[in-house]
Each structure stands twice: as C-alpha cells, then as structure tokens.
C-alpha cells in the first residue's frame, strides 16, 4: 500500500497551566488514507479537537511533540508561513459552530473569495466570482447569486454551515478535517449536511477526519473509528467491527449509553463521573480505571499499550478481557440506601 495521506506518529500536544505543561493529546498515532473517513469519537475533554487543531497548526501556545506527516512531509511545528501554503488549500477544516465561524461584517462571497485570493492568486476576479457561485451551487445553496452579496446574519445556521463547507472545499483539499460539523445544527439539517459532505468527499477523493461525539454520525459516515479517552486512543477499528464487536470498556460503555428504539430498556447505561480536567488527568496506569471502579485493579496493565486483537483492531489495556457491566438495579438500591 502506498503512503497514507496523513500519518500521525506519537503526537503529544501539551498546554501550559502555570509553570508546567500538561498533555491534552498523549502519544497518539493515526493514519488516514485517501477517500477514507476516519472518525474520532470521545466525550468532551478527551482531546479530539486538540488533535485536529494540532494537525492544522492552529494552536497558539501549545507544545507539539511527535510527527505529523501530510503527503510524506512533516508538518508538525512548521513555521506559520510554510503552514499557510497547506491551510485552506490541500488541508482544510470545517468548524463546529457556523453561527460564529464566519466574519459577521463580511459578505459571504468575499469570505469565500479570501481563500481563493490566498491560494489562487493568478485567477482573475471575474473568474473567481463565477467559481464562487458554482461553489455555492455545489453546496446546494439556493439563489447563489443573491447569497454571494449577503451577510452571515441573513442566513440560517444550516446555510452558514454550507458556506463554511464551500470555503473548505474551494481549493479541492486532499484532507478535510471536520470538527463536530453537525453539533450545532438541528437533526434534519444534520442529515443534509452529512449527505453533502459524503458526496463532496467522493467527488474530491479526499481523506476526512471527522471529529464527533455523536455515534449516529459515526455509523453514517465513517470507514474507521478511533475512540479517544483522556488524550489517548483506547480503541481503533473499522466501523463495523467497532459497532458489532467493541472491546474497550469505554467503547462498550459509550455504545450502551445510546437509547435504542427497538430495545425497550428501563434504564440507559450511564458512565459515572466525568473526564478529569487536563491538570488532573491520570498519567499512569489505565486512565479509564477510575470510572469503572468495580473492575479489579489487577485487570489493568501497569503501562497500558494498544494491543492488536485482530487485523486493524487495536485495544488499549488488558482490562477489556475482564470488563462487565454492573447490575444497575442492585447499584441503584445501594444508592437509595446511601441517600436515606
């Protein structure tokens, strides 16, 4: 197989709090191929967005260690000037909140135009305008000529997200990073936007890193899935394996906390506790152990590593072998006793 489009090796992104650096992304290695959608899932605070921003070089004051190879070139810690040749061009990003991601004082057309001016400087203005209107049509915006001169506040959330997608695909990127692209949209619009993204990906034959906490989006879009917890990847597998044969306790907990229509459970599974804050992340042992306290300590590895349990399916730590869901009803009784 040829070189992957994006190859992340031992990436560690740390932020400074006070005098010390704390890693939000800790020793992450990933590959993304052409025309492949890699989904990164995890709760808030698991380091998904920090990972995406590291690839784009958009962190302001973070320490980035490790390598990020894009088309064979290491772009980790590349100077801004060099990085700007990639950003918006071969490497582009779709943002989470379309309501704030556009400049409120600039016409939509000019905001798309900016990315053309920056990367296609020899394109004459009239041609650029024609191309922008084509782009607006391509992302299924009605009356593109009219929208060209409109301001973001005159458009709905879904329309604005389409504009952001138009900006992202304007220069036919080879890698598209979508940071929770549907989180801020309502459900019907979400489906449309996902359909559009999939179409565009197939057209452009580009790789996609899809960051989300919505497992429904993952099931619909992804080819492969990486599950992140507390800055680490805890499980990677292709999408079918992950949904049908999840192994890591965290993945299994996530999947069993989705409500199912045809399975009338009394109670949904709840992962107790929260992702610890950056400063208080456990740096040793299995990072998920604190949230599954009923699992014995010797089930965890001392230095958990990723194990390939079947081709392309990696799981961190050994605790997955011993994991079981606690009996919720019994647990509730205990809670009730504790309360009274």
């Amino acid at each position: 197989m040829s070189n992957p489009l994006l190859e992340i090796k031992n990436l560690k992104t740390s932020f400074r709090i006070g005098e010390k650096y704390y890693a939000a992304v800790d020793d992450v290695s990933l590959n993304v191929n052409e025309n492949e959608v890699l989904a990164i899932v995890g709760e808030s605070g698991s380091g998904k967005s920090a990972l995406a921003f590291s690839v784009m070089g958009l962190h302001n004051r973070a320490k980035i260690e490790g390598d990020i190879f894009f088309k064979g070139k290491n772009i980790a810690n590349l100077p801004t000037k060099e990085m700007n040749k990639f950003r918006g061009n071969e490497l582009s990003m779709i943002f989470q909140d379309p309501l704030t991601a556009l400049n409120p004082l600039m016409e939509v057309g000019r905001q798309i135009d900016e990315v053309l001016i920056l990367h296609k400087s020899n394109m004459p203005k009239s041609q650029r305008k024609k191309y922008i209107i084509e782009l607006l049509e391509r992302v299924e915006i009605p009356r593109p000529k009219h929208v060209y001169n409109q301001f973001p506040h005159e458009l709905s959330g879904g329309m604005r997200q389409r504009v952001i997608i138009a900006i992202a695909i304007a220069n036919q990127p080879e890698l598209l990073i979508a940071d929770e692209p549907t989180t801020a949209l309502d459900v019907t619009i979400q489906a449309q936007i996902l359909d559009l993204m999939r179409e565009l990906k197939d057209d452009l034959n580009s790789g996609v890193v899809l960051i989300t906490h919505d497992l429904g989006v993952v099931a619909e879009m992804a080819d492969r899935v990486a599950v992140m917890y507390a800055g680490e990847i805890v499980e990677i597998a292709d999408v079918d394996t992950l949904f049908n044969n999840p192994q890591h306790p965290y993945t299994r907990s996530l999947l069993s906390s989705i409500p199912l229509l045809d399975d009338a459970q009394d109670k949904l599974h709840v992962i107790h506790g929260i992702v610890p804050s950056l400063k208080h992340l456990p740096r040793e042992g299995c990072r998920f152990s604190a949230r599954i306290p009923w699992i014995e300590e010797d089930a965890h590895e001392e230095q958990p590593t990723l194990h390939e349990i079947s081709p392309g399916h990696f799981v961190r730590c050994t605790c997955y072998k011993h994991f079981y869901f606690p009996d919720e009803s019994k647990e509730d009784q205990n809670h009730d006793v504790a309360k009274s």
């Binding site: 784009m56 958009l58 801004t80 000037k81 990085m83 700007n84 040749k85 990639f86 950003r87 918006g88 061009n89 582009s92 990003m93 943002f95 909140d97 704030t100 991601a101 556009l102 400049n103 409120p104 900016e114 990315v115 920056l118 990367h119 952001i164 900006i167």
Partner: peptide, 15 residues
C-alpha cells in the same frame, strides 16, 4: 478570540 479568526487562519491567511 472569536471563532471567525480561527476560520481566517485555517484559510491560510498570514497574520
């Protein structure tokens, strides 16, 4: 610190 500034940087705009 607004989001659209990140958008501008992600477009490859120099500082």
């Amino acid at each position: 610190q607004r989001d659209f500034i990140i958008t501008a940087r992600a477009k490859g705009a120099p500082e």
